[in-house]
Amino acid sequence: MAKVSKSPWLLHYDASSCNGCDIEVLDCLTPKYDIERFGIINTGDPFQADILLITGGVNSQTEPVVKQLYSQIPEPKVVVAVGICACTGGVFKECYNIKGGIDTVIPVDVYVPGCAARPEAIIDGVVQAVAILDKKREEYRRQKNAK
């Protein structure tokens, strides 16, 4: 964790999950797990976010919302799929209104399995996302300088 150079902000969106993973994401913010000790804050505004946490499989109605939120987050950005439904579709895979995992709509960097994903796993996923964010930031800077 020595590499955390800045405090990344999280944006959480529920793309048709059962709520289980969502409350575990919220749980990460509360005293027992306290994700803020990594400098991470949960924000409601995509324009200020660095990491997008998405729970649940995508359906026809949330697809445009997910795409819009993704496009509103400034570069560089990292997407974390939380829970098995967000990874592959999970138990909902056979439903007529589920497209499958989040990666059918937007690129995903970190997959956190579990039904529901436990807070420990979510924190682990976010910490990995922070490392990826650092790498992406470096890449982004290099590209910018090359121009």
């Binding site: 359906n59 109605q61 949330t62 909902f92 439903c95 007529y96 209104n97 589920i98």
Partner: peptide, 8 residues
């Protein structure tokens, strides 16, 4: 937004 069609 979260309709999955579980009854089906």
């Amino acid at each position: 937004f979260i309709h999955r069609g579980l009854e089906k």
